[in-house]
Design a protein around this nucleic acid. Structure first.
Lengths: 130, 130, 130, 130
DNA sequence: GTGGTCTAGACCACA
DNA sequence: GTGGTCTAGACCACC
């Protein structure tokens, strides 16, 4: 899991985790039937409380992209990749438009912003993971 | 003040107010020496508690963008427009980049995103207000 | 009236005015029977609302150092100088000790502070007005 | 936390708390990484509303002297002692000079005031805590 | 348990 | 009328 949790962000850590896992599933980095990292392992890795990870996993199950099996862990569902992709694409597009509007409203030039996107294209491959 | 407070957003209402006022000052819709809406009036207008508006105004003063004059109101400072512009431009650019990265990571095409920016150029004039 | 009202101070403007007038009476710059500046004149001079001056004058009368006569103004009482002196000396000494304690607590050197007092002696004559 | 909140003072309780905490950090009584008393505990201790303490802690964070960690408490930052010292020394020196001027203006003798400082030297050690 | 924010209502001082 | 602060009690998310 290549992600950094920003405790100063307004979006709560548990949701940052959900988004990160959705990204991994959507990008194919996690395939159906594959297990997610254990709660305590992931908690140690991203430096948050295990309860926070547990909550994120619960949310992922509620979204239908993951399922908990007895006591053996949490696994990506068959429908996971599709749902994750749909959800993340819709979310990020909406967020992108909102950020674009705010930036234009603040006086940024549309050409400069478009250039920010084009330039990032090489640096940040579309389907890759961070 | 043309703004809507979204109580479901993760960003707290008081900060939404701060951002809205910064936008107005940055865009020139409020000029130095001009009074902001009174706490009570704005509170009634955006349907939040007066304390929430008071907190936003307090933050604006702390940013050096507005100053409260004892019993007569809160006014835009001389340095207000400059500081508001600088702050909003930095904030929105950072948010734009973050949203761009998230969108690319979710699989959106860079050319499509760039097009989103270009197309919005006419609809959303750079210096305009919402 | 040589005084500046600081609207950013925690001590309210009306009390700053009271202190300034007490200083003048205590120092002998205003003698018994002498009229204080009219409310509106003083208000214009120190850039505060006439109500604020009126309140200060009311407080001065309540302290017994000034008395309002019919409609002709507010005048220094016979006991004014004595009371003003007593009050200001007690107040300023207490404030001085408190400021001294806070400064020492913050790590300032007592010798340096004492020097601040000695050096000011020439600059700031003891019985003078600012 | 050895402090008394004076509800009759013109300086608001939340700022009295800020000053008290700054004093503690500046004096070394609280070291970087150390937690401040919890909002609720301190509120009970000094007999103010928890919101008042929360506001003081918020101000301390905004000064860069403390940082809130999400659910575990508020902690002194690495730069805390340095910033607290700088701020308190500047504040108390300014207040000392103002009190000195007022005392001189009220007729106190400079030598007596200087003596007040010297005499307190033994009683009130420079780096000590109250 | 922790802090962070909001709502609601009050008081104060100034204009 | 204005802003500024406090109190009181609630909700949320994290530890």
């Amino acid at each position: 899991m290549h992600c950094r949790i920003d405790p100063h962000s307004h979006v709560p850590p548990s949701q940052q985790l959900v988004d990160a896992v959705l990204d991994e599933i959507a990008s194919g980095a996690r395939v159906p039937g594959e297990a997610l990292p254990s709660v305590r392992v992931l908690a140690a890795q991203v430096l948050v409380n295990p309860n926070t990870v547990a909550r994120a996993y619960r949310d992922l199950q509620q979204l239908g992209v993951a399922e908990g099996r007895n006591g053996s862990g949490v696994f990506v569902t068959d429908a996971g990749p599709q749902r994750a992709r749909a959800r993340r694409q819709a979310e990020t597009l909406a967020a992108f438009r909102a950020a674009r509007d705010a930036a234009l409203r603040a006086g940024h030039d549309a050409r400069v912003l478009a250039d920010e996107v084009e330039r990032a294209h090489g640096t940040q491959p579309a389907g890759g993971r961070r």
